[in-house]
Amino acid sequence: MKICKKLHAQHYIKMKNKKAQIKMFETIAVLLIFFVLVGFGLIFYMKFMRTSIEDTGEHQFDLKAIQTAQLVSFLPELQCTSPTSANIVIDDCFDVLKVKALANISKEPAYERINNEYYFDSFGYSKIYIENIYPYSPENWIVYERTLPNKKFQSSTKVPVSLYYPVTNSYSFGVLTVEVYG
């Protein structure tokens, strides 16, 4: 009887141990699954964040391209001024003599420091040129050029502008092209 009781107790302890082990495994399995799910969630979130960051990058690049085009359109070095007051500038109009002057300056090695320091700060990697459309002339003026060898993005913005010839007091139809590299 005593032996029987002892065997029964041993069997009971063994059973309880097994049950506890199963419970522990169950808990570990639940935790594992939980962390796997969290991991999946994180991977999904990271992927989404990366796309979102890339989108933001592209949006920033577009914004930069617009700002550069706007900046060039209102550059005092190029704009026509009113004959009555030099502080009144004429919108969408470039003085051809100023355009030619800036194009010459940007070509000259003596002004490289200005191009590198000053204009690069504003325009970065870009090419800015002006073409004469009507009356047609093959002449076009590159006022700034700094190319990027390994460019990921490129954006080209074209803005129609009046080109004012002070000598003949006439206006021609021109196009300002701003190519921004990123």
Binding site: V159, V161, Y171, G174
Partner: peptide, 9 residues
């Protein structure tokens, strides 16, 4: 700009 510049040409 197209119209503005065109008219001034």
């Amino acid at each position: 700009n197209m119209i503005n510049v065109l008219l001034k040409t």
